[in-house]
Design a protein around this nucleic acid. Structure first.
Lengths: 245, 245
DNA sequence: TGGGATTTGTTCGTATGTATT
DNA sequence: GAATACATACGAACAAATCCC
């Protein structure tokens, strides 16, 4: 995959994070002018960023209309979860096949971090690490394409949660992740797949439970915060191959 | 998903078809000027088209370098087939779940067409219909996202065949498709999934068998042919929901 | 190795369409 | 319902990098 101009990637990642963490609520308008001003780039580049986000299902964009943060329908949500279940099951199968003890250490470490974040009620980090566990699993599958698809799906699930779920509901239960690691450690591939299936079923049920809204935030404020954050992450860790912090 | 400017869609579809049918060989350079001239549009629009094709894995594009028709590596090919197997298995499962007799008619009809094309050795149509059967199955799953992913994967498989397969080897055996329909008719979901699995295994084996190259063609000639073809298809059938002829 | 031709990256102006009063 | 304000669509031109001889 081509690496676009670094400025594009910065803006892309910043907006991605802002949407995932629900700092930009679904339906929020994203005028090219405002985005361009925040990231100091011309509308041409902004359009490229918005196009990427649209391809990922994170923004709705119709010709001649201002782009907005995507508002997934219930049918789309169902589709996303269905595909995600199939793909994560396959990922678990592959991870089980090429299992190594070091994998358990990695996953355990993530699990611990997630637990800590949950304990100190740090919602932003908590939301982030929830997806990170699943993403790491996808990476361990050794299939780059599977990883790319799952990254997209996991991200979209965060957005779906924002629309349909209780505000900031934690979407993953720690115990379910921990059971998954245990099954993989035992070499129980089928068991691990089954656990993943029921885990994602539970996530979906929690996600589609209820939903309400809070107060919107000023677009400019949110973006300036996220622009700074992403720039910092990139400069401290310049030669990233993947684009996860 | 936004409908882009119709001109973008024409060029996109034309290039897609040209790549799938191997009229544009992997590695062929795709300069923005030449494309723009062929489709009578400015480089701004060409860039949008190339971006889409890149996202679909059909072109390799690096910054400051001329885009080329993608040359999948062996590892990428393996990844594509792996994900495709998982997703098509899921599609078959879903189709079985919402099975209706009319489905069989549709699939039978495609099968017949494919058979006829094969009989009169019409390679272009044959290649096209081979993917069409699988794509139709994805549509019958009722999951739009699954359909989108599978369209991408099926397309990429055609490209992979161009790189690694024998030139113009037929990638799908008729009997395997026919057995799949039979299993679905009987209501044998598990059997159908198993057939799909082994079918795609066979396809992969055939695809990764051998490979050699022939003579390249002039980019301009190829594009003008495909531009005319796609325009004709679109004007005769304007309000398409999907973009398959 | 060097330099010219080619090709892409980016900006900005104008046209066109949409939403709002 | 018409006019105005606003935002996007598209294209031409300039700058910078790459490719190739």
């Amino acid at each position: 995959m081509a690496r676009p101009s670094p400025r594009i990637e910065v803006a892309h990642e910043a907006l991605r994070q802002a949407i995932i963490e629900q700092a930009l609520k679904p339906g929020t308008k994203l005028p090219e002018d405002v985005i361009g001003e925040q990231f100091a780039m011309s509308r041409t580049l902004v359009r490229a960023v918005l196009a990427k986000l649209e391809a990922e299902g994170l923004v709705d964009a119709n010709p001649k209309r201002t782009a907005t943060v995507a508002q997934p329908t219930l049918a789309e949500a169902r589709d996303v979860f269905e595909v995600r279940r199939a793909l994560e099951a396959e990922a678990v199968r592959l991870v089980a096949k090429r299992w190594q003890p070091s994998f358990a250490d990695e996953l355990d470490s993530l699990l611990r971090q997630e637990d800590e974040a949950r304990a100190r009620q740090d919602e932003r980090v908590s939301i982030h690490l929830a997806g990170e566990f699943h993403l790491r699993l996808a990476q361990l599958s050794g299939n780059a394409l599977l990883e790319r698809y799952l990254r997209e799906l996991i991200t979209r699930c965060s957005l779906i949660l924002a629309v349909f779920g209780r505000p900031h509901s934690s979407d993953c239960a720690i115990e379910e992740h921990s059971a998954l690691i245990a099954a993989l450690r035992k070499g129980d591939a089928d068991g691990a797949v089954a656990i993943m299936h029921s885990h994602l079923g539970a996530v979906e049920r929690r996600a589609l439970l209820g939903g309400d809204d809070e107060k919107p935030a000023a677009l400019g404020d949110v973006l300036s915060r996220y622009a700074a954050a992403v720039t910092a992450r990139q400069t401290t860790k310049p030669p990233r191959t993947a684009n996860q912090p």
